[in-house]
Write a protein that binds this DNA or RNA. Structure first.
Lengths: 234, 234
DNA sequence: GCCCTCGGATTTGTATACAAGAATATCACG
DNA sequence: CGTGATATTCTTGTATACAAATCCGAGGGC
């Protein structure tokens, strides 16, 4: 879209996802007007859309505020995400192009490299490379599912947790498992086995949920590996 | 909401669902302005919301038109509905109140009566009583699932097919099966068996999909029963 | 006769002005 | 000094005016 409304939407959405506005914070239209450089009308449209997507809640005559998400709500969201993405993986298994599978392999490799480096150097700066590749990985699968409505639902549950800015703390073993999930998923795609693909994706998301929901300081079951903080997970 | 935007939303939505606007028909803002008795601003907000819900599609600088739904798209929608409602049924099994179960029994009975009457009198006017009870049946389950996001997704896939105004043609045996599904669902709830409930609901929706997707004149497998036309099914 | 181009009309997108409701501060009273 | 009613101020909701883009038809060229 080349409309100003779309711009306002992107700007406000970015501000929220980047943490410039914290959950519960009130969003005054005039304030956003300044930040976006547009008038109130497109700002209002953007807010309405963000509300439909669950990033903000808006109450009549009281304006908008960034959505707040509780622990149990987060659980619920991850359950929905497991449902949606596993469904997508199933559809993708029957539809995904070979070129897309090739791309998935590249991305899986990149994530493996990123983890290997981080582990070797004992650094926790895994974020960027991993999450970028991971996001594209999931996006490709969702696109291969070729269902606009499913995609719409996915954004509903993928983006909302991001406003929490909770870095999932993956243990080394959990990271390893995640990487194996990626490879297994690719195998399932190559086998065109939708049930297999769907099942792997479900595991993948449920496992991610564990790493996210687990509170900051809570220790992993055993081992001396410190958690690897990651942005978008799964 | 007591705002005028909400009014415009309801009015336009009703007009579409009642078939006053046919799929593909263009919706001019000024025209809707007259029909709703409000100015363009709330009309535009309503259209944006309806677009997010999938009832209308809007292209920049070209306005809105009622969504068109193809055969394969309808299949896709029913697949999503099966996913969502079965998930809801599973959650509901663990949460639904006994009073709600009691209400489900009443509704199941009403639907059975409606079908019995229609069959006895050989009349096809089953619509009202059945669909009303059926809608409430499904709504109760969705509410029992207690997940606002899931509910939002449900409206996304439940309402859109309605703009087609395709009456599902249920054969007598299919109707009977549907009624049995209702009873089985209730049993699953009483047993608090989420997997059972989820599975039954999935069957229920998939069966409904068959009755809807099947073209107008296509005959049922066997038997001399003429199709029972129903509005909202499943 | 057909197609392309240009101009008017129509329609959507955006800004702004005005109205209505909610939050807050002030002042009077207990 | 605390409490409550009231008034002010601020914010949102709605209407309208203006700008920009698209659509449609007339006219001319090929």
């Amino acid at each position: 879209m080349s409309t100003v409304s779309a711009l306002a939407y992107k700007v406000i959405r970015s501000l929220i996802l980047e943490g410039r506005f914290i959950p519960g914070e009130r969003l005054k239209e005039e304030e956003l007007t300044d930040l976006c450089g547009v008038s109130r009308t497109p700002v209002r449209e953007a807010l309405r859309r963000l509300a439909l997507e669950g990033l903000v809640v808006l109450t009549p005559h009281q304006g908008a505020q960034v959505a707040e998400i509780g622990e149990i709500e987060l659980q619920e969201i991850y359950a929905l995400r497991a449902m949606i993405e596993s469904h997508a993986a199933g559809r993708a298994a029957k539809r995904i192009a070979l070129s897309a599978i090739a791309r998935l392999k590249v991305l899986a490799g990149q994530m493996e490299d990123a983890v290997a480096q981080a582990v070797r150097r004992r650094q926790t700066k895994l974020y960027e490379r991993y999450t970028t590749a991971n996001s594209e990985f999931h996006r490709i699968i969702m696109e291969a599912a070729d269902s606009p409505r499913l995609s719409a639902m996915a954004t509903l549950v993928v983006e909302v947790p991001l406003i929490l800015r909770t870095l999932a703390r993956y243990s080394e073993s959990e990271l390893s498992r995640s990487l194996h999930h990626h490879r297994e998923l690719i195998e399932a795609f190559e086998a065109r086995d939708e049930d297999w693909a769907s099942s792997v994706m479900r595991c993948h998301i449920r496992a991610a949920a564990q790493a996210v929901v687990r509170p900051e300081g809570e220790a992993e079951p055993a081992g001396n590996d410190q958690g690897q903080p990651l942005g978008q997970v799964g």
